[in-house]
């Protein structure tokens, strides 16, 4: 197939991939405009925000692609991650305040973020085994609708539960690493932001490697293509689905934890990240993991452009408009959806 397409004239190739071409040109224009107006600082800002959205959206895409769950409690995993990081980091910070230790202060935030990731993974296992596994055994009829309603329910329970147990207070930190901002190309970036970006890229990279190169990762991809077929060649569906859900939850918790300096932990903190992650996933194509990574950066471009050229309060408007346009013109997303289960059901 690849051979065929390279021999075909350029015009017809452009025509076949029209949504991708249009969005690439559009993104390029935005990129240049942001650079001219805001300089390096805004470009870095965009890339870093894009990395965050990508990490969140990859989890959503994975859960949708493998399990056909439209996950609307993803923001609550973000919230839990933020809380766990807060409650592990602040005691460590207090200890280090009285007993200064350079090495420990460098490593403590990473410990908090890792703890949040582990907590997220455990939360994912509990939710999957307690809620989705029984539903799967009971009936697969109207799965997407049922799963959607369940995730909305989970989201309510978790955010109100947090409100009940921890109260509506904002719990945040000003920074993880108490060091000066780094100068890159004339722009000052805080170390927290750079490391948050690095964490999201490393996590996505690790996930990529896991899905492509390991036995279990390959089993996950087989399940995403055909559940029944995968089970018949000896893949344990229950294990794969629990693992996938737990991975996605862990990724959301990691991003919640690594962004604690930006989003303070409070019961409904997950809303904004959730909506951005959904913008990304709908634009890129449901269940398309690679698309979700690129989509994260496109949404970040739109966001920065709106903040620069329109007004901060319009930040969510432009992504929504673009999302609606994409759905009108290319209903399966810019990069297309490879999810088979949806059409089947």
């Amino acid at each position: 197939m690849a051979k065929n397409s390279s021999a075909r004239p350029l015009m017809s190739r452009i025509k076949d991939n029209l949504p991708i071409v249009v969005i690439s040109i559009f993104s390029l224009i935005l990129f240049v405009a942001i650079y001219i107006e805001g300089g390096n600082a805004q470009i870095f800002n965009t890339i870093i925000t894009g990395g965050m959205w990508a990490l969140l959206a990859v989890g959503l895409a994975l859960v949708f692609g493998v399990m056909n769950i439209p996950h609307f409690a993803h923001g609550e995993s973000f919230m839990i991650g933020a809380y766990v990081a807060y409650f592990t980091f602040t005691p460590m910070q207090e200890y280090l305040y009285t007993n200064p230790n350079k090495f420990l202060s460098a490593i403590a935030p990473l410990g908090a973020i890792l703890t949040a990731g582990v907590a997220g993974a455990i939360l994912g296992i509990i939710i999957e085994q307690l809620i989705f596994a029984p539903l799967r055994r009971r009936t697969k009829k109207d799965w997407i609708m049922n799963a959607f309603l369940l995730t909305v329910g989970i989201s309510f329970v978790l955010s109100n539960g947090a409100n009940l147990v921890l109260g509506p207070n904002f719990r945040g930190i000003s920074r993880y690493w108490d060091v000066k901002a780094v100068e890159i190309g004339g722009a000052y970036m805080s170390v927290d932001r750079l490391i948050a970006f690095a964490i999201s890229m490393v996590t996505i990279g690790a996930l990529w490697f896991f899905l492509r190169r390991t036995r279990v990762g390959r089993a996950i991809r087989a399940v995403s293509q055909d559940e029944t077929g995968a089970q018949l060649v000896g893949i344990n569906l229950n294990f794969i689905q629990t693992l996938t859900f737990s991975l996605a939850t862990a990724m959301a918790s990691i991003s919640g934890a690594s962004l604690l300096f930006l989003f303070q932990a409070y019961p409904t903190v997950g809303g904004t990240p959730l909506y951005y992650a959904w913008y990304v996933v709908m634009m890129a194509g449901l269940g398309n993991v690679v698309g979700a990574i690129i989509g994260g950066f496109i949404v970040a471009l739109l966001q920065t452009a709106t903040q620069l050229f329109v007004a901060v309060s319009w930040t969510t408007v432009l992504p929504t408009v673009v999302m609606i346009l994409v759905l009108l013109i290319a209903p399966s997303g810019i990069f297309g959806s490879e999810v088979k289960g949806v059409q089947e059901q």
Partner: peptide
């Protein structure tokens, strides 16, 4: 379950 039966040596086509 189907995956255990597969490992025990029962395969099928559809």
């Amino acid at each position: 379950s189907a995956e255990i039966m597969c490992h025990k040596g029962m395969a099928r086509t559809f």
